[in-house]
């Protein structure tokens, strides 16, 4: 069982390195995005020592952490492929194999995340040496453990959320990219990937807790930075776990329903 998934893991890593220029450009884009956000905020802080209650070092720490968290949580090749495989009938190849389709893609995602994270650490180290930003790091173990747990849950939520959306290809294969695009638009802003969500009005922040988005990026970072402390950490972690459970059940439900309608069109 384990060896089967180790082989998938290994094959995924090899696959990533096959198209080298693509790989280099992928890394270049990652660095570019970081620099983009970094220099934007540096520019904003030229005139104001504080923006939204954040000083420069706090916001720069948030941005650098965002890069790491995004590379762990949102790096997910399964996203596009699942919908595509259902739409063109390639799913049939998996259904006849002694393999759990969701688990297969999860392993491939993990391989991609590990690769992404390894290169991120390398790139971040180089950028640190170049930019020498002042960053704030936590000084207690609870924040670190809370961060690790929140990240693990976020990985699960994102994977299942993405997969559930792509499962709609069973019914409407031609609309999958537009549904995914619409969700990604919300995710981009409401997850905290562009700016920390605590700059938003309190009511908006409370409302967002009833969506899965802030549990992906914002809350793990807020826990790490000590913006959320004590019992509040436990509450957020419980809420995120509930979201994971709900989305897991939803994904299972859609998958089972979808398989019943699957006609292997295209093959």
């Amino acid at each position: 069982m384990l060896s089967k998934f180790f082989i998938i893991f290994n094959a995924s890593l090899q696959n990533e390195f096959t198209y080298r220029l693509n790989f280099i450009l992928w890394r270049f884009r990652n660095v570019l995005r970081l620099l983009m956000t970094y220099f934007l905020w540096r520019g904003i802080f030229v005139n104001s020592p504080q923006v939204f209650g954040y000083d420069q070092s706090q916001i720069l720490t948030y941005i650098l952490l965002t890069l790491i968290v995004v590379s762990i949580v949102l790096s997910s090749p399964s996203g596009e492929r699942i919908g595509e495989e259902i739409a063109n009938g390639d799913l049939s190849n998996y259904l006849v194999k002694p393999l759990n389709y969701l688990r297969y893609w999860f392993i491939r995602d993990v391989a991609s995340k590990i690769l992404n994270l390894s290169f991120n650490i390398l790139e971040l180290s180089l950028l640190f040496l170049w930019l020498r930003p002042i960053v704030n790091l936590p000084n207690n173990l609870i924040s670190i453990f809370g961060f690790v747990y929140a990240i693990s849950i976020a990985v699960g939520i994102y994977f299942l959320l993405n997969a559930s959306l792509r499962f709609f290809a069973f019914w409407s294969p031609e609309n999958i990219w537009s549904i995914a695009f619409l969700t990604f638009v919300f995710l981009e802003t409401l997850s905290g990937a562009v700016f920390p969500l605590d700059i938003l009005p309190k009511t908006v922040q409370i409302g967002l807790q009833f969506t899965p988005f802030p549990y992906l990026i914002y809350y793990p970072i807020a826990i790490f930075l000590g913006k959320i402390q004590g019992l509040e950490i436990i509450r957020i972690l419980i809420q995120s776990t509930i979201w994971l459970f709900l989305i897991f059940r939803f994904a299972q439900f859609i998958w089972k329903k979808g398989l019943k309608t699957y006609g292997a069109y295209g093959k």
């Binding site: 031609e174 609309n175 549904i179 695009f181 619409l182 990604f184």
Partner: peptide, 15 residues
């Protein structure tokens, strides 16, 4: 594909 047209327009406008 009118549904995709509508979803794309809404998504882009929101972005």
């Amino acid at each position: 594909n009118r549904a995709a047209f509508a979803l794309f327009t809404v998504g882009k406008t929101i972005r």
